[in-house]
Amino acid sequence: MATLFETRKLGLPLMNLIRLEGLPILKQLHLEEELFRTSKDNWCIINDGTDDPTIVMGISGKPAELLDIKPVLHDEIPVIRRFTGGGTVIVDPGTIFATFICNKEAVPGLQPYPRPIMSWSSLIYEQVFQGIGNFRLCENDYAFGDRKFGGNAQSITKRRWIHHTSFLWDYDARNMSYLRLPKRAPEYRMARDHMEFICRLKDYLPRSTFINKTVEALGTHFSLESVVYEADKDPSAIKFMPTTRQLTREELEEALSATDLENCPAQYASL
C-alpha cells in the first residue's frame, strides 16, 4: 500500500480504492453519492455483482417511456432513480460496477465535461482490453465492435466529477424484456433489439482478470490505497441524505395509468 509520501514522490495523485462483492446497488449508489457530495478525496469503487435484478434509471428517466411497467409490477422488480444522468439498465449478479469519483484537478489537463471524461475513462479500458476483442468507445458506451457491454453515467459539479459504469459480465435475456427501446437511442444501435445490441463480457476474459486488470490500469494514473467499507454501518450514524431512491409501487402504478390513458382511443380519452 502506497503511503502519502510515496504518492508525492511518484507524482501521482492519491485514489482510495474500495472493492466490494455483491453489495446491493441501492447501497452502492448511496455510498457513491455520499463520497461525491461530502468527500474531498479521489475514489474508485468496484462492486462485483449485486443482489436481485434491479432496474436503475438516470435522474431524469421516465418509467412510462423506459419500462414495460406491467411486468415490472407483476414481477416486483425494484426501480431506482439514481443521482446521475445516463440511460436505463437492469442489473443483477452478472453485472460488474466500476466508479471513478475525482476532484477537478486529479487528471492533469482533463476538462471537466462529459465527453472529455468519457474519452479519458476509455483510455483506462483500452489498457484493460489490450489485445482482447475490438474495444471501442461508441458514443457513450463501451463496446466490442458494434455490440455494447458497458453503459456509463456521470455527474459533474464545480469541483468534482463522477463517472460510473455497469459492465454486462453476464445477463439473463428474460430481464431485458422489462426495458423499452429508448426514444433517444445511440445512432450505432440502429434500432436493434437488446439481444442484437449487447454482448457478454464473460465471452472475452475471466471475471477476476477483468477486475484485476482494471485496478492495474487505474494504478498507472493514480497511487491506489485500499479502504475497507463498512456495509453494516448504523443508519442512525449517517447524516448524509442521498437523493438516489427506489420508486414506490404507487409511482409506478401512476406511470402505468398515464400510459394507458395516452394509448386509449380518442373517443374514450375523456371518460
Rank of each mutant, 00 (worst) to 15 (best):
A98M: 11
H221M: 05
K233H: 12
L261G: 02
Y171N: 01
E262T: 05
R160Q: 04
I156W: 03
G86S: 12
Y268D: 09
K70L: 12
T38M: 13
E254W: 01
E262F: 03
Y178C: 03
R136Q: 12
Y125G: 10
L218T: 03
E32D: 08
Q127I: 08
V89E: 01
P186G: 13
K148C: 07
N140W: 00
A173S: 14
E126F: 01
D48M: 05
R245K: 08
Q267P: 06
E262H: 04
E34S: 14
E262D: 11
F97K: 00
D48Y: 04
W120C: 04
D41F: 05
K70S: 14
R159K: 14
L110M: 07
F210M: 03
D170I: 03
R160E: 12
L218K: 04
R136H: 12
I96K: 03
K27A: 08
F149Q: 02
D193F: 01
D260R: 14
A231K: 12
A2V: 14
E6V: 02
L179F: 10
L271C: 09
A269I: 01
P24M: 07
I156P: 02
E253K: 11
R37E: 15
F83P: 02
L110K: 03
N42F: 04
A237R: 13
L271H: 10
A143C: 11
S223K: 06
T38H: 07
A153T: 04
L218E: 01
Y188G: 02
V128I: 05
S257K: 13
G219A: 01
C138F: 01
S236H: 10
T84S: 15
Y142I: 12
L31Y: 02
S257I: 01
I80Q: 10
L4Y: 03
D75F: 07
S119H: 08
T220N: 08
L247I: 03
P63K: 10
I59Q: 14
I117G: 04
D92S: 15
L205G: 02
D203E: 15
D232Y: 04
T84C: 12
C102L: 15
R249D: 12
I162E: 08
P186E: 13
I69A: 03
I162V: 14
D232L: 11
T99I: 07
E250N: 13
I162P: 02
C264P: 00
G58A: 07
L35E: 09
G22V: 10
T165N: 15
T157S: 15
R159A: 14
R174F: 04
I132R: 07
G109W: 03
I238E: 13
D52F: 08
G85K: 09
I59C: 15
E253Q: 12
R8E: 13
N152A: 08
T214S: 13
A231N: 09
A231V: 12
Y204A: 11
L201Y: 00
T157L: 00
F100E: 05
S39R: 02
I238F: 02
L201K: 00
L67Y: 01
L247D: 03
L26E: 09
L252W: 00
R82F: 07
E216Q: 14
T214N: 08
E21N: 11
G22D: 09
G49H: 05
E253V: 05
F100P: 00
L256M: 08
E21I: 00
K213F: 06
M118K: 08
C44W: 00
D51C: 12
L181C: 06
L31V: 06
I211R: 02
